[in-house]
Amino acid sequence: MDMEAALRDPAAVFASPEAVAEHAELSREQKIEVLRLWGYGASEAEVATEEGMPGGGDGSELLRRIILALDGLIGEVDVGDSAPTKQHAVLLRQGRS
């Protein structure tokens, strides 16, 4: 598995956020890093669609699946508090070890 490629474009390496969470060769920290980057990209795509740029697709469903996968790895994904940007960064509490 090419970690550098996964960090550049998670969707090109993994079929789904769930596939990242279940990947046997990645450490928990690597899974979290890939999912956070994928989530940021999905948020960016949602903002682009909202602003009328073509090619956004259904980013909200993808983002929901990324958040669920992160919650399975970390627990306590806090979607109530969000960053003061359109991307609404997902804040993560390190609840699990």
Rank of each mutant, 00 (worst) to 15 (best):
H88E: 09
E4I: 11
V77Y: 01
E44C: 14
G56D: 02
M1Y: 10
S97W: 11
Y40M: 07
I32Q: 05
V90E: 01
E46N: 12
K86F: 04
A69E: 02
Q87I: 13
A48N: 15
R36M: 10
V47H: 09
A45R: 15
L68A: 14
I32V: 15
L92R: 05
A24Q: 13
V34T: 11
A42M: 06
D58F: 07
Q94G: 13
M3L: 15
A69N: 06
G52E: 03
M53D: 14
R36C: 13
A21C: 10
A12R: 13
E22A: 15
V90G: 04
L68N: 09
G75Y: 02
G75E: 01
R28Q: 12
E25P: 15
H88V: 05
P10N: 00
E44H: 10
D2T: 08
D71I: 01
D78M: 04
G39K: 00
M1Q: 12
R8T: 13
G80V: 08
R64E: 05
L70H: 03
L35Y: 03
L63A: 08
S82G: 04
E4R: 10
H88I: 04
G95L: 05
S82I: 02
R28T: 15
H23E: 06
D78A: 04
L92Q: 03
V20R: 01
E76R: 11
L7E: 08
E22S: 14
G95V: 08
E50H: 06
A11C: 14
A89R: 07
E76V: 15
D58Q: 09
V79K: 04
L26N: 05
Q87W: 03
D81H: 11
P54M: 00
L91C: 13
V34H: 07
G57S: 05
